[in-house]
């Protein structure tokens, strides 16, 4: 494994991002200005010099800002670590560019799971239906915004 850079004395200008999925490394050691990750508490912006953080991600949009380019991915779930040396690691199970999402399937799924949530009886079914509703609403929001 490549050794990580040590914590610099002053705040660096760029953030180094590693965005990995199980089947590929989407972004590898790229220097960017900012990333916005969908943390469980809401969208969290990470800038160079951000305090070291561990955060769990919820289904939502991850955007990478480099100069004037913004690349958006929809992330299903995962973790993001920000280290003191301005390196951000984002590990996700599944991430797709937002334009690969099919809106009609999203609507269909949302309707199905909302119905399931209403009719769920056991704890497990309720949890599954709730997850379905959460994911599909997040997909909907990603397509809209």
């Amino acid at each position: 494994m490549k050794p990580r850079p040590p914590t610099p004395a002053s705040i660096p200008t760029k953030l180094t991002v590693n965005f990995v999925l199980p089947y590929k490394s989407e972004i590898d050691n790229k220097e960017v200005d900012m990333v916005i990750v969908p943390a469980t508490t809401g969208q969290m912006g990470v800038l160079p010099g951000h305090v070291a953080t561990i955060t769990e991600l919820k289904p939502g949009v991850l955007s990478v800002h480099e100069g004037n380019d913004v690349t958006k991915y929809f992330v299903s779930s995962g973790f993001a670590f920000v280290h003191a040396n301005s390196v951000a690691d984002i590990v996700a199970v599944e991430a797709v560019p937002v334009d690969q999402i099919d809106p009609s399937l999203v609507q269909k799924g949302l309707a199905e799971f909302t119905a399931k949530l209403g009719s769920a009886s056991t704890d497990l079914e309720k949890a599954e239906a709730q997850i379905g509703v959460d994911v599909h609403s997040a997909l909907n929001a990603a397509l809209a915004g």
Binding site: M1, P22, S25, I54, F81, V87, D89, V91
Partner: peptide, 10 residues
């Protein structure tokens, strides 16, 4: 291979 490296770094 990039998948486990963040965990080891942390």
């Amino acid at each position: 291979r990039g998948l486990w490296q963040p965990f080891t770094a942390l």
